[in-house]
């Protein structure tokens, strides 16, 4: 059964994520050199970039699980999809927030209608749509299947949206921003990858523990749940 296995794995992922966070933060904020053009402010990318990468990646993973659940009618994959959504939305939100914090000192404004930030915002909307559709359907099976279909439609649409936003951005010429300086120093890269791995592990830990509670909720009438030590209390 998946439930106890996930229960054993969660602490490991959580602890290693915490360690990597600490290391990554240290590398990023104390070891990595100050950027020549952007000064100290650039250091926020150690949070911004991993968060935005994960937010996009998690959407695809979520859509993949949703598709599996829809096609093969496996309930665990549907539960995984609904467990992934809040974490993905959180990362999208963090990416937007840090993007704004980065934008203020860099371009003097909290928000620029840059292609990447705009796409990130739309991605957040897609996550919110998925979560609210799932939340407003009472029947769990219909909720799973309906939101799975939405996730698939969304993931097919994401490239079209990204392309159109990019195109819109170049047309309006408002703010073309070059991310990432010409070459990243090795320590910067290390810090970045450490943070990415930390976020990744964090996502796994959180999603696993969330899927555990979803399983408990869905299976609350079954015998094995009633016999669990933590429930029997």
């Amino acid at each position: 059964m998946f439930y106890p296995l996930a229960g054993k794995l969660v602490p490991w992922f959580a602890v290693s994520s915490a360690i990597l966070f600490a290391v990554g933060m240290y590398l990023g904020f104390f070891v990595a050199p100050t950027d020549a053009t952007q000064g100290e402010f650039y250091r926020i990318i150690y949070i911004h970039v991993p968060a935005s990468i994960l937010s996009m990646f998690l959407y695809l993973v979520m859509a993949g699980y949703a598709a599996l659940g829809l096609i093969f009618n496996t309930r665990l994959s549907s539960m995984m999809a609904s467990a992934l959504a809040p974490t993905g939305a959180l990362f999208a939100f963090i990416a937007l927030w840090t993007g704004a914090l980065w934008g203020k000192p860099m371009w003097g404004t909290w928000w620029v209608w840059d292609a990447r930030l705009t796409s990130e915002l739309i991605l957040l909307f897609l996550y919110l749509g998925f979560i609210s559709l799932h939340a407003s359907i009472d029947d769990p099976r219909r909720a799973d299947r309906a939101s799975a279909l939405l996730a698939i439609v969304g993931s097919v649409n994401v490239p079209i949206i990204y392309f159109s936003v990019k195109w819109w951005n170049t047309l309006h010429q408002g703010s073309t921003i070059k991310f990432t300086g010409t070459s990243m120093q090795v320590t910067m890269q290390h810090a970045m990858f450490t943070m990415l791995a930390a976020c990744w592990l964090y996502a796994v830990a959180v999603v696993l523990s969330r899927v555990r509670s979803i399983i408990l909720e869905r299976e609350r009438h079954t015998k094995w749940v009633a016999e669990l030590p933590e429930v029997a209390l």
């Binding site: 739309i122 909307f125 897609l126 919110l128 749509g129 609210s132 559709l133 939405l150 439609v153 969304g154 649409n157 079209i160 949206i161 392309f163 159109s164 936003v165 195109w167 819109w168």
Partner: peptide, 12 residues
């Protein structure tokens, strides 16, 4: 909420 984000390319 569901449909508007998907309509963005059309709008653009």
């Amino acid at each position: 909420l569901l449909v508007l984000p998907l309509c963005i390319p059309v709008l653009i």
